[in-house]
């Protein structure tokens, strides 16, 4: 999980100048980001790095292992809202919410996609255990959500059917 972020070149790109401009008042951390010395994800204190290894896994067990090093138990306290039939596999709205306490992360896995892990969110204390996003699905698949609560993993899943569009497929 704490593998290094892919290397960032030392060049000051246009994007980085934007960062410099926008974070101009943000102190030394922001300057370090702007100079390309530190990836922005690290600029915030103790922010974990992009989990490269987990995103490279092609099945659920390996993705979970790479991401958390733990296994999952099903929980009815994790609620997942996805469409039964996606209106378009390119844009599938996914909403996750849970009544579990001390949630530190929420991840979404799509086992039938080429890479299983779609998104992983880190929730510091004070952030509500609920997130909505839009994901791509290559074909009909379960959508598996994983909630890390008090150090344990709880999950829920639902199938989303992905059909080719009649108009444009």
């Amino acid at each position: 999980m704490s593998r290094a972020v892919s290397s960032v070149s030392g060049e000051v790109s246009a994007g980085r100048r934007l960062v410099l401009h926008a974070l101009g008042l943000g102190g030394m951390a922001a300057l370090a980001v702007a100079a390309g010395l530190v990836p922005p994800a690290r600029a915030a204190e103790e922010a974990p790095a992009w989990p490269k290894n987990a995103f490279a896994q092609k099945d659920q067990a390996h993705a979970l292992d790479a991401l958390y090093g733990k296994t999952l138990e099903a929980s009815d306290k994790v609620s997942l809202d996805v469409p039964e039939i996606a209106e378009n596999g390119a844009v599938v709205p996914v909403s996750v919410t849970t009544s579990l306490p001390n949630v530190t992360s929420i991840s979404v896995l799509i086992p039938e996609n080429p890479y299983t892990l779609a998104a992983s969110y880190r929730l510091p204390e004070g952030t509500e255990p609920s997130v909505s996003c839009r994901l791509k699905m290559a074909k009909t698949s379960d959508v598996v959500v994983v909630v890390e609560s008090a150090g344990k993993l709880y999950g829920a899943k639902k199938q989303v059917k992905v059909t080719l569009g009649g108009c444009g497929g």
């Binding site: 915030a44 974990p48 390119a90 890479y115 892990l117 909505s132 839009r134 791509k136 699905m137």
Partner: peptide, 16 residues
């Protein structure tokens, strides 16, 4: 903090 891979939709949306 959001960590995303290539399966996140174009022009990504997020709510929290």
């Amino acid at each position: 903090t959001a960590f995303w891979g290539p399966a996140v939709s174009k022009d990504p949306y997020l709510k929290f």
